[in-house]
């Protein structure tokens, strides 16, 4: 059904247009002079000079990934592959390995022998962070992947990912974890005779 749209009524000065155009010019000129010659508090410049100045990313910005450390500097990651399973872009490649004989973590845990993220493939959805049961991968770095000249530079390996600090500048997270030897984690506390 067609229906009639009522045209908004116009006053004579609006109809003449030149008057309204002059008013508009008044507004824009006023803005121009305020922004150029006005006092600093009157200026309303909304933009910044980007590479020279930059704004902080929002608190929850999903930036470049990092692999968090344990207190001894080894990765928290246990190579469970949950992140690469959750990854819709399939950009995470992990090869697990076991801690060697004699290592206190031998038998408890494994670690990523290889942990590679293709940052060009990544869509920064944050699913890997959601999936991680160990708080080992985080995107709280507050920075994006730096630009580079070569595709290879965007293949971030374990060492690269572990060298990126969080927004607070540290490599650890606030979440506690039990390590073998902790009072809360006595480890293999009984002999096991065959």
């Amino acid at each position: 059904m067609a229906y009639l749209i009522k045209k908004p009524a116009r006053t004579l000065s609006e109809q003449v247009y030149a008057v309204e155009a002059a008013k508009g010019l008044g507004i824009t000129f006023r803005r121009l002079f305020t922004n150029v010659f006005g006092k600093a508090e009157d200026k309303k410049i909304a933009t910044i000079q980007y590479p020279d100045e930059s704004r902080d990313y929002p608190e929850r910005f999903r930036g470049v990934h990092r692999l968090t450390h344990r207190v001894d500097g080894s990765p928290r990651c246990v190579a469970c592959l949950c992140c690469s399973t959750a990854c819709p872009a399939q950009c995470i490649h992990i090869e697990p390995a076991e801690y060697g004989e004699g290592d206190p973590r031998h038998g408890y845990e494994r670690f990523p022998r290889l942990f590679v993220i293709d940052e060009l493939r990544c869509i920064f959805c944050g699913f890997c962070v959601e999936a991680c049961p160990c708080d080992a991968i985080r995107m709280d770095t507050g920075t994006h992947v730096p630009a580079s000249w070569s595709r290879e530079h965007f293949i971030f390996d374990k060492e690269t990912l572990m060298s990126i600090p969080g927004r607070d500048g540290t490599y650890v997270t606030d979440n506690p974890r039990h390590e073998p030897g902790d009072p809360t984690h006595p480890g293999i506390d009984r002999d096991h005779h065959h």
């Binding site: 031998h106 038998g107 408890y108 809360t184 984690h185 006595p186 480890g187 293999i188 506390d189 009984r190 096991h192």
Partner: peptide, 19 residues
């Protein structure tokens, strides 16, 4: 409370590990 801890990664033989 902390769960009871028991032996982990016990080698049962050439092929099997027990937790």
């Amino acid at each position: 409370t902390e769960p009871v801890h028991k032996p982990k990664a016990v080698t049962f033989g050439p092929t099997i590990v027990y937790d």
